[in-house]
Design a protein around this nucleic acid. Structure first.
Lengths: 112, 112
DNA sequence: ATCTAATATAGAAATATATAGATACTCGTG
DNA sequence: CACGAGTATCTATATATTTCTATATTAGAT
């Protein structure tokens, strides 16, 4: 096999990115390793929410856990994911954005 | 505004890519404009399936229709989408693939 | 005006995903 | 070995997406 399996796999990958919290997690990890707790605080979310979304990303090998004593630290499993997010941002920036205010916010992000 | 709206927007974009048929459509459009019929034949799908998935892509401004008489021809609304798919392919190629057979198929795609 | 080819939309049933809260697990420390 | 901090999983309910099939729309030709 086979085409169908491959296409399903690709779709699964994008589905894993298709969630606001997961995108925020990935964007945070783009700047370096974080523990669950650090993510939780940075994104102001309940702990189970973070763990659960991390487990979705883990299932797709998008993110990698590393145990350090009682904490677990996560990294992107591939630096290209950062690049992918950057290109997505360019696309939004170019023309996919509907509202002025989102455009502004996007440009703020792109600048940094 | 505002953060939440932007993150929702980004998630929506990825959600639009998260479907085997839509990915195949985008990969086909990466090589140039196509009519609905051409897509339908190239991908061996029923007409309503193609139109329906095109409408999902249209809703996100990922794809653009152009009427030519009684047919409608579609293009990617941004060439960066091709680049995005290429990077996704690199990521799969690097390490996200679980099975040998998918890996082979992927490499076949990447080569061309 | 009617017919036909090409495309688009609608509706219903099946399936998948999201969300929130409670609970379970794991590891180091006392 | 019991405890606590940090993580992970489970369950239930709500919501969204997918898939199929039928039908509607649109533009050009007769």
């Amino acid at each position: 096999m086979n085409r169908p399996a491959l296409q399903e796999f690709k779709a699964g990958f994008f589905r894993a990115l298709a969630h606001p919290v997961r995108i925020r997690i990935l964007e945070t990890l783009s700047t370096g390793e974080r523990s669950v707790q650090e993510l939780q605080q940075a994104l102001d979310l309940d702990q189970p929410v973070v763990s659960q979304q991390l487990s979705v990303l883990r299932a797709r090998n998008i993110v990698e856990p590393r145990k350090v004593g009682t904490t677990v630290r996560y990294t992107l499993s591939d630096p290209l994911i950062t690049k992918l997010l950057a290109i997505a941002r360019e696309i939004f920036n170019n023309r996919l954005v509907g509202t002025q205010s989102m455009l502004k916010e996007l440009q703020r992000e792109t600048r940094k």
